[in-house]
């Protein structure tokens, strides 16, 4: 993106924003931010994070939409059914299935209305999960930006976790004074009851051990592999904010060992960033990385287009 105007300074008086209603019943609510002139970049689709509506945490999706529209990409942010301003789309389908259909409908809308047929998906957390699962099913997806997607914990994750715990003074204080989880565990193993409420087994409430189930691993491996095989480039950024689930850069490679990412995975670990990128400097860091990745995607797309024309 170095040959373009810096998106950061071009927060775009000349971009335009429009409400669009998409989907089978024209009720998927989105905002499309369009570049001033003809688009020069692939359309970007921003997905919900959990149940937060399309504006995103810290209004991040609005910032992203305006930034990349200023750089030539049409950008659409929309709400899945039952979130924000979109009513539930299906009373019978599970939310994941309904949401995947919705992503397809947004792609269809963009193809029909903009005449573009290659797309970028961006998502944080559940938005990342939807992105990769959808990319496995639709070869129109040229790339996905995944921020803190769900991946299983690994042996090295647990080693890192223990090593990190050992650097905490509280751990040693508890060991010396007979308090804390470790002693509670020992007392339970020794069959001694009488543990205090503080010492009840902690179920690591935020971690998702179900992702370590072989079926879940196989599902994720298939999703990533199919997305790669479909030609999708992957920018994956993991943060220290979800250190109960991932804590090192290469965890996805260890967790999903059968996926052959080839050169399509651009992998980063931002240990000092929280899950929703609360600080402006962290958001700017993420967006600078995305700028560079998008520039590479666009260059590759242009090369493909040129070779297609030459063959044609």
């Amino acid at each position: 993106m170095s040959d373009r105007q810096s998106p950061a300074t071009a927060l775009a008086p000349k971009t335009s924003e429009q409400v669009v209603l998409m989907g089978a019943i024209s009720s998927l609510c989105g905002i499309i931010t369009r570049p001033a002139g003809d688009p020069t970049g692939l359309p970007i689709i921003l997905l919900n994070t959990g149940i937060i509506h399309r504006v995103g945490h810290h209004r991040m999706n609005v910032t992203i939409a305006r930034r990349y529209a200023a750089a030539g990409h049409p950008v659409i942010r929309f709400d899945f059914g039952g979130i924000g301003d979109s009513p539930v789309q299906s009373e019978t389908l599970p939310p994941l299935d309904a949401n995947l259909i919705s992503i397809g409908e947004v792609c269809d809308w963009l193809e029909t209305n903009l005449g573009q047929s290659r797309f970028i998906l961006m998502g944080l957390c559940s938005g990342a999960d939807h992105s990769i699962i959808y990319a496995a099913r639709d070869p129109r997806i040229a790339g996905v930006v995944l921020v803190d997607p769900s991946i299983p914990r690994t042996f090295r994750f647990h080693v890192n976790n223990v090593a990190r715990d050992l650097t905490r003074r509280a751990v040693w204080t508890n060991l010396a004074t007979g308090r804390g989880r470790t002693w509670a565990r020992i007392r339970r193993l020794a069959g001694r009851s009488g543990a205090t409420a503080d010492e009840e087994p902690r179920n690591e409430p935020f971690a998702r051990p179900e992702l370590e189930h072989p079926e879940a691993v196989a599902f994720l491996e298939k999703a990533y592999q199919d997305a790669v095989d479909n030609g999708a480039e992957i920018l994956a950024v993991f943060t220290g904010g979800h250190d109960f689930q991932h804590n090192y850069r290469r965890q996805i490679l260890d967790a999903l060992p059968r996926v052959k990412f080839g050169k399509q995975l651009d992998l980063h670990f931002y240990a000092d960033c929280d899950h929703t990128f609360t600080f402006e400097r962290h958001r700017e860091r993420l967006l600078r990385l995305t700028d560079e990745w998008l520039a590479r995607i666009m260059a590759a797309e242009q090369r493909e287009e040129t070779s297609r024309r030459q063959i044609g």
Binding site: H57, H58, D274, T276, F277, T278, F279, E280, R281
Partner: peptide, 19 residues
């Protein structure tokens, strides 16, 4: 994450409050 960071004057100054 600690005290709210200051914002640069060229960005309008002030502080960051919860994002």
């Amino acid at each position: 994450m600690g005290p709210p960071p200051l914002r640069a004057p060229e960005k309008g100054g002030g502080h960051e409050i919860c994002g």
